[in-house]
Simulated scan of single mutants.
Amino acid sequence: MSFENLPILVILVLSVLGHNNSVAIAAGALLLVKLSGFDNYFPIIENHGLQLGIILITMSVLVPIVKGSITMNDMASVFTTPTGLVAITIGVIVAWLAGRGLPFMSTTPEVVTPLIIGTVVGVAFFKGLAVGPLIASGIVWFFLTLIQACR
Rank of each mutant, 00 (worst) to 15 (best):
T71M: 09
N20H: 11
S22H: 10
K127N: 15
N21K: 12
V121G: 09
L52G: 00
I54M: 09
T83P: 00
I116M: 14
G128R: 12
G101F: 01
I65L: 15
V61E: 04
I65G: 09
A124I: 09
F143A: 10
V13C: 11
A124K: 07
F104A: 03
V120I: 15
K67F: 01
M105S: 07
K127T: 13
L85Y: 03
G68P: 00
T71C: 10
I25D: 04
L102K: 02
L9Y: 13
L30N: 06
L6E: 03
N20K: 07
L129V: 13
L146G: 09
L31C: 02
L146S: 13
F143P: 00
G28M: 01
V13Y: 05
A136N: 04
Q148L: 02
S77R: 12
S69Y: 04
L134D: 02
V10Y: 07
V66W: 06
G28C: 05
D74F: 06
T81F: 12
I54C: 09
V131N: 01
N73C: 05
M1L: 11
I117F: 14
I45A: 01
A136C: 12
L56K: 03
L102N: 01
G84S: 07
L50N: 08
F142K: 04
L12H: 00
R100Y: 08
G91L: 08
I93S: 04
S69R: 08
V61I: 13
V92L: 14
L85R: 15
V112H: 01
A27C: 15
P103R: 06
G128D: 14
G68E: 03
V111F: 07
A87Q: 13
G91T: 06
G68F: 02
V92F: 14
S22T: 13
G132M: 10
S22Y: 06
I55N: 02
N47W: 02
I65R: 07
H19T: 13
S137W: 05
P43E: 14
D39R: 05
S137M: 09
L62Q: 03
I70G: 01
A124Y: 01
T80Q: 13
A26R: 00
P103S: 06
P7N: 13
T71V: 07
A24P: 00
W141H: 11
I65Q: 05
I70F: 04
G99Q: 08
K127L: 15
V86S: 08
G101A: 06
N73M: 10
V13T: 09
A124W: 05
T119E: 00
A98T: 07
A95T: 15
A98I: 03
I147S: 12
F79T: 06
L134G: 09
Y41L: 15
V13H: 05
M72Q: 09
W141L: 07
S36W: 09
H19S: 14
M105R: 02
W141I: 01
N21E: 12
L12R: 00
S77N: 12
P64C: 14
S22P: 11
F142C: 07
G138W: 00
L14S: 11
L9E: 06
V140G: 02
T107P: 01
